[in-house]
């Protein structure tokens, strides 16, 4: 067994175990964390398969940004677990059926018939300074430029839609808004005035006449 194989089996078993844990664990926050572990293991497998750009982007986008937002939502929502688990057994047969169907479709599409070991040759081992980032970028920006731009526009529309959905201004009597631009623009002179005035000198305190008691 080579070192790479050890790494591969390690990452693959982590990915599978975390996938199983993700769907079977009760706590939604922990389920999301298992999903993160699954992502990281998958990214590791991709990197061992010389797709380091894809692997790193998977971590950067899914683990670093997407799952954090997801965790936000799950943590904030305070999901009632018992309510979700109530009809678990009732839906179980349907769930098993669906998962078998999905697995079958996936097997047909990306099974050994199409992507098996004998269909796909072993990728050439590239030298260490080989950059597959460039290799990915060139077809993306030339052959598939149209699809690429379309996807970008779609994402932009998504961003705009999400912002318009959440952006609602209520009357100032209901919610008070802070206009930070205005706050930042405030100058010293807007807030207070420095006034020149004559200093007021207090009179000296006269020492009390020393009588018998004062002298002790």
């Amino acid at each position: 067994m080579t070192f790479l194989e050890v790494i591969f089996y390690l990452l693959a078993s982590i990915a599978i175990i975390s996938g199983l844990m993700m769907i079977s664990i009760k706590n939604p926050v922990q389920a999301a964390l298992w999903l993160v572990l699954g992502f990281i293991a998958t990214a590791g497998i991709w990197i061992t398969a010389q797709a380091e750009f894809l692997g790193l982007v998977l971590i950067l986008v899914y683990v670093g940004a997407l799952m954090v937002l997801f965790l936000f939502v799950v943590m904030m929502l305070d999901v009632n677990i018992t309510q979700i688990k109530e009809r678990f057994t009732a839906y179980l047969p349907l769930g098993i059926l669906t998962s078998i169907a999905i697995f079958a479709i996936m097997y047909m599409v990306i099974g050994p018939d199409r992507y098996g070991v004998d269909q796909m040759p072993v990728p050439k081992s590239m030298p260490a300074d080989f950059s597959n980032t460039k290799l990915l970028a060139i077809p993306l920006y030339t052959e598939h430029a149209y699809a690429f731009v379309l996807a970008a526009v779609l994402l932009l529309v998504g961003i705009v839609a999400a912002i318009t959905l959440t952006l609602r201004r209520r009357a100032p009597s209901v919610v008070l808004y802070q206009d930070i631009d205005k706050q930042v623009k405030v100058q010293r002179n807007d807030r207070f005035k420095i006034i020149k005035m004559d200093a007021v000198v207090e009179e000296d305190v006269k020492p009390i006449d020393e009588d018998e008691e004062g002298k002790k």
């Binding site: 964390l33 380091e52 943590m75 300074d129 980032t133």
Partner: peptide
Amino acid sequence: DINAGVLYVLAVSSIGVYGIIISGW
């Protein structure tokens, strides 16, 4: 000396968020 070094640093440091978010939760 990998050729996607910048991306690696970005990706790995983005995992650091989880330490914080998990500790808080």
